[in-house]
Amino acid sequence: DVAKSIIKLAVYGKAQNRSYERLALLVDTIGPRPSGSKSLEKAIQIMYQNLQQDGLENVHLEPVKVPHWERGVESAVMLEPRFHNMAILGLGSSIGTPPEGITAEVLVVTSFEELQRRAPEARGKIVVYNQPYVNYSTTVQYRVRGAVEAAKVGALASLIRSVTSLSIYSPHTGIQEYQVGVAKIPTACITVEDAEMMSRMASRGTKIVIQLKMGAKNYPEAESYNTVAEIIGSKYPEQVVLVSGHLDSWDVGQGAMDDGGGAFISWEALSLIKDLGLRPKRTLRLVLWTAEEQGGVGAFQYYQLHKEAISNYSLVMESDSGTFLPYGLQFTGSDKARTIMKEVMNLLQPINITRLFRGGEGTDINYWIQAGVPGASLLDDLNKYFSFHHSHGDTMSVMDPKEMNVASAVWAVVSYVVADMEAMLPRS
């Protein structure tokens, strides 16, 4: 009755709300934890102590090098057709503007294709992208490539409609990427509301002028750590089930949802198993990644360090899409492994979360999944998730203790059973 015991402890027992309260203590104390910042390193040290005090095994920090970008002071003011202070968030790794800022006329486009068609008009201008929201993975291309495409046609800066399906005048930051051989121009996200307003103004033929000031700076790489803790396997200790979330966040809100929730339900999964005195045959390894937001930087260095043991990884799990009430588990793996995982999910009948979807993935575990290791992630209300994603709204007020209890139970049952089954999950 292991599954029922875990569910009982997590959802109805004395471990209720523990993951929420632990998370609140950290993010209330530390706040957001951007890569390269002192607050991230302080959070890592706190988690190192937490995991030791919790009685987990082989608690250690694996050093990695991470990017260090700081936002500085930033502003965007519409000067024409009227004075209007705009809410903006510079995009990660963007360069800053000169101290006096960039003041230029605006060209509003709704797609990369329109930008190409109107390329001659873009020279010397600030390009504003008012791209429609399709879904996150499609639309985020504008945030990632917007500056490069605008620079190719001679723009001075780019302002990108926030990638979100809901907005209450809330800018959403995120990483962007420059391209070798293409000029670097400052780039920031603006609110859906301002992007749509400027689109309407432009369609009436109104001239728009904006003054953009960004104090963003890219510093040399910083020292950071992936945080690791284990329950060492009783029979096949060198075989691993990896349970993870990332500890870094953007410099907005508290970084509670993205990805404090994922990190803390992963810790909770091991805590629940330890509290019940359970020790699976395989090692359960908790990893709290660093520098996920810059593109899985900490996780890539973990993969490089550990990939020789890839045949020992039965399953890699990452929760990085919210810890609201789970709809079920996303899974990537062979048909035979999928058959087995369906049986595992049936154990969660008591909390009615038995569905197994496709597309198990996560920025930090994709290296392993692409190399053939089965992968799993939680699926929950993604519309709600992306409404707060990378915005000042990412605070504890978004999180729900009862939902985190259930997410922790799912995470613990799945990780424990796969770690304790006699057979490793079969590969494709």
């Binding site: 096949y236 058959t339 087995i340 049986e343 049936n346 154990l347 006699e422 057979a423 490793m424």
Partner: peptide, 24 residues
Amino acid sequence: NTIHGNDVSQRTLEDIKEEISSYE
């Protein structure tokens, strides 16, 4: 491709299903 011969080929899916249900 596993170390201890505890791979699926040596045990039928039925065995594994039975094993998993024991965790219920």
